[in-house]
Amino acid sequence: MAQNLVGASETNQTGATNAGAETPDQPFGGLQPSRLIPGFGETPDTAVSPLADIPGLLVDEPAPDNPTVFEVGALNVFYGEFRAVRDVTMSVREREITSFIGPSGCGKSTVLRCFNRMNDLVAGARVEGKLEYFGVDLYSERVNPVEVRRRIGMVFQKPNPFPKSIFDNVAYGPKIAGTKKKSDLEDIVERSLRQAALWDEVKDRLNSSALGMSGGQQQRLCIARAMAVDPEVILMDEPCSALDPIATARIEDLMRQLKDDYTILIVTHNMQQAARVSDATAFFSTEESAAGDRRSGVLVEFDRTDKIFSVPSDERTENYITGRFG
């Protein structure tokens, strides 16, 4: 098992070069879905790819050939007898941002928590179907969930820094993973805080409590904390829902930068956010469960983000993103 996962991380590295060369930074290959969503497409022309002016490269839909990180097939999640989400099928590609959108109760967070086996911690939760991580079945009995969570980090809806110093927050993960030396930890902390665009703000008060920071800083600290264990994937569960627009914009900038090194899955309530930052989008919706008494979730459509927001193939998706539902 461990060897499989190590092998996987090598694939990860090879994939990096491909991804950097062929994923254009221009969103949606010229398609302008802004007719559907006000404010869409305004932000991300900060870093134009050096390849952007090569003719013919940025065609309508550049076929993404980044390696697949997660292969999900017919995934169902149950709480006891109740099927909370059904029929999730998608493949998540490396060094991309994949967003989950949909109305409340559609199960997008539940599905996200399957990817690092956080649902194990909910009594009665059960997962059926295929969820492979670089070809390894994450729910195989031989997989150690603790190791899974070390490789697949998570950032939560509400910033949840530990009641420790800023330094100790970031150093917590590496410490439990076995890094002992003070100087190593210092390096990791600085690198992670720089990656999370927080270093300059906190470098003079690393020893003060993390609980004294602003909400946006706390969330970036949590991102730094997640990156400190050097994960391969970062899951974000509505990371901006507790933040103001300025802090949100910073987190989104950060996500675009992190995309160079990490595969990111993000659940968001905010459609514009999904459209702004993500490469692929999964739209979940709710439906009456078989018994008819509770609402459960279903994956309606999974596609490239530009497609979802311009020419969705399912009517429910179109209704949702045009604001007619949800």
């Binding site: 690092n116 956080m118 911690l121 603790v146 190791e147 969570r149 070390r150 490789r151 980090g153 998570m154 939560f156 509400k158 949840n160 820094p161 530990f162 009641p163 420790k164 917590y172 993960g173 439990i176 993973a177 949590c222 904390r225 997640a226 264990v229």
Partner: peptide, 27 residues
């Protein structure tokens, strides 16, 4: 102890014991 803090530790790959010593007891 906030449930979120426990989840935070577990999501970093902490075992239950590491979660207790790292989050629950300090809290």
């Amino acid at each position: 102890v906030p449930h979120n803090d426990r989840l935070g530790a577990l999501a970093l790959g902490a075992t239950r014991w590491e979660m207790i010593t790292g989050v629950v007891l300090p809290h």
